[in-house]
Design a protein around this nucleic acid. Structure first.
Lengths: 186, 186
DNA sequence: GTCTATATTCCGATAGAC
DNA sequence: GTCTATCGGAATATAGAC
């Protein structure tokens, strides 16, 4: 795959995760990469294409992470911590997550982007619910609700915390994310 | 205060909570209200003014709600339920909340809008943390973390759940919000 | 693959009449 | 207060040369 294409994908994701989908333009990308507007359109004919491709890339990244954790036989705590670490890293880089960046704009997105985003959220929630269920069965997690509800609460907390952190400016993210984990201890 | 001004404020808020700040235009407002572009600019010279005014209105609304609950001597559970009910209503109306709508776009907002939004988030979190603390002291709430952490987890869950609900299309919001409350039961 | 050049549309905003 | 008319600018997108 083309290097320029990859750079556009990466920068596009960064822009969406810092400014938002409806706030960034192809000019932002071309000027930053030192190329012209038309070159960006060569790889991604429309902004919709770019948006959808970015979500698809993230789906793939998530799938690879899950496969990787399974092959390395991560236990339930290690897997959950891996998810939380993604958010700690995002916070350190002053970025929101892909889901939290696209979600508020969902109504304004292309149909295919909406579809992929939905797929991504369902994928994460299903994986998380199963993980919580397994962990509870093995006695390493403790929680009262259904695994599906708990997965939704945990994921929501992670998504919105990055948004609130950006608003508040300062937030002790480490101890906040730790409290989410502590909450599951038996 | 002018009726038109109030209508613009109300519709502006709805547009922000459905499409997002950077996706709606003054045309959306003028066409819907049957007035002209210039009329909207008469009340709110710039989009920044409108954005800031909408946040300020919501701050005022929140303050009035808190005062009202105090004068009616709501107990801790009633107050928490009142907050949750706002989110249940938002979900029913297929809207996000003001905080969740502005937050992802924070970087692109006018400085005064950013300031007001920060004020609003701090206000809600402080109120919620104090409420949780009081409730725990009185033995009606039970949770392990600090009240500040718990307030952040609960508020984040509410904010992001509206965003995820919009992405997923269908979500049992009643039982979800109930699980947030159940989690606090002694 | 990247460029120049341009088409089109829309947006935020303002001047000035009524 | 609301209108008509319009400006300047920016954004998405395309045609065609190199």
């Amino acid at each position: 795959m083309s290097v320029t294409r990859e750079k556009i994908l990466e920068l596009g994701e960064t822009l969406i995760r810092t400014k938002g989908y409806n706030a960034f333009s192809y000019q932002d990308i071309s000027s930053e990469l030192g190329i012209k507007n038309a070159a960006v359109h060569y790889y991604f004919p429309s902004k919709k294409n770019l948006g959808t491709s970015i979500v698809k890339t993230n789906i793939q990244r998530f799938e690879e992470m899950v496969e990787n954790m399974e092959s390395r036989q991560f236990d339930e705590w290690q897997q959950l911590e891996a998810l939380v670490k993604i958010y700690i890293k995002s916070h350190r880089e002053k970025k929101k997550c892909v889901v939290g960046s696209f979600s508020p704009d969902i109504k304004t997105l292309d149909e295919s982007t909406q579809k992929e985003l939905k797929k991504m959220v369902e994928m994460i929630l299903n994986w998380l619910a199963k993980l919580l269920e397994k962990g509870r069965d093995r006695g390493v997690f403790s929680f009262a609700d259904s695994a599906e509800s708990k997965a939704l609460v945990i994921f929501s907390s992670l998504v919105a915390s990055l948004q609130l952190a950006a608003v508040l400016g300062k937030l002790d993210y480490k101890s906040y994310s730790q409290s989410i984990l502590d909450d599951l201890k038996p």
